[in-house]
Computed example of a mutant assay.
Amino acid sequence: MIELKKLLYKKCMEYVDERIASIESALLASHDASVNDTKSSAGDKYETTREMMQQEISRNSLQLMEAKKLRISMNKLSPDSTSPIVKPGSYVCTTNGNFYISISAGLIQIGEKSTYAVSHFSPIGKLLLGLQSGETITVNNQTYTILSVQ
């Protein structure tokens, strides 16, 4: 199970790294477009375009900051640790799916295993925290009984 957690950790880090690279690329493109934009005879059009580019740069900067927070969250996890109680970094098998409590990265397929990477701030993550094998939660009228925690 530790090997599976290591692979899940790696996939989540790849997700974060790809997200950061994509945002940095968009930021660079927005910045280059802003610098290379020349003033046209239609002054209002020029100002509107520059303002839109600035808004895009601001939006991308915010997204980059959030993505870097995800990396910090992942760096706090240890894929080698185990605990009988669900905590950040836990791998949780339930009757209705498997969950890696880390970041919200969605469904991760490793071999035959499907696992949802969820944040401990997500609705299901919040409910799972602090529980152990045999305990049950209900989310959206669906019951999840914890079979094991790693």
Results as ranks from 00 to 15, higher is better:
residue 39 K to A: 13
residue 69 K to Q: 14
residue 105 A to M: 05
residue 34 S to A: 10
residue 123 P to K: 05
residue 81 S to P: 04
residue 72 I to D: 07
residue 14 E to S: 12
residue 140 N to Q: 14
residue 126 K to D: 05
residue 76 K to E: 10
residue 119 S to I: 00
residue 111 G to D: 10
residue 136 T to K: 13
residue 25 S to M: 13
residue 87 K to V: 14
residue 15 Y to C: 01
residue 57 I to Y: 03
residue 87 K to T: 10
residue 114 S to F: 09
residue 147 L to P: 09
residue 54 Q to W: 01
residue 132 Q to K: 15
residue 47 E to T: 08
residue 61 S to L: 07
residue 16 V to I: 14
residue 117 A to I: 02
residue 92 V to P: 05
residue 118 V to D: 03
residue 121 F to K: 11
residue 128 L to Q: 05
residue 104 S to V: 02
residue 116 Y to P: 00
residue 128 L to Y: 09
residue 81 S to R: 13
residue 148 S to I: 05
residue 8 L to W: 08
residue 115 T to Y: 08
residue 13 M to C: 07
residue 89 G to A: 09
residue 69 K to Y: 07
residue 10 K to R: 11
residue 62 L to N: 13
residue 31 H to Y: 13
residue 78 S to C: 07
residue 45 K to W: 00
residue 79 P to Y: 06
residue 102 S to A: 14
residue 131 L to C: 06
residue 70 L to M: 15
residue 142 Q to P: 00
residue 33 A to W: 00
residue 71 R to Y: 05
residue 77 L to D: 03
residue 140 N to A: 14
residue 7 L to K: 15
residue 20 I to T: 08
residue 134 G to V: 08
residue 108 I to D: 11
residue 63 Q to M: 13
residue 108 I to K: 13
residue 23 I to P: 01
residue 8 L to N: 09
residue 107 L to Y: 06
residue 140 N to C: 06
residue 95 T to H: 05
residue 90 S to F: 07
residue 29 A to M: 09
residue 42 A to E: 15
residue 110 I to F: 07
residue 131 L to N: 04
residue 132 Q to L: 01
residue 98 N to V: 00
residue 11 K to I: 00
residue 11 K to F: 01
residue 30 S to G: 15
residue 107 L to C: 08
residue 133 S to V: 02
residue 73 S to M: 11
residue 51 E to S: 15
residue 60 N to I: 12
residue 132 Q to H: 13
residue 145 T to S: 06
residue 124 I to T: 04
residue 93 C to M: 09
residue 48 T to A: 15
residue 124 I to N: 02
residue 67 A to E: 06
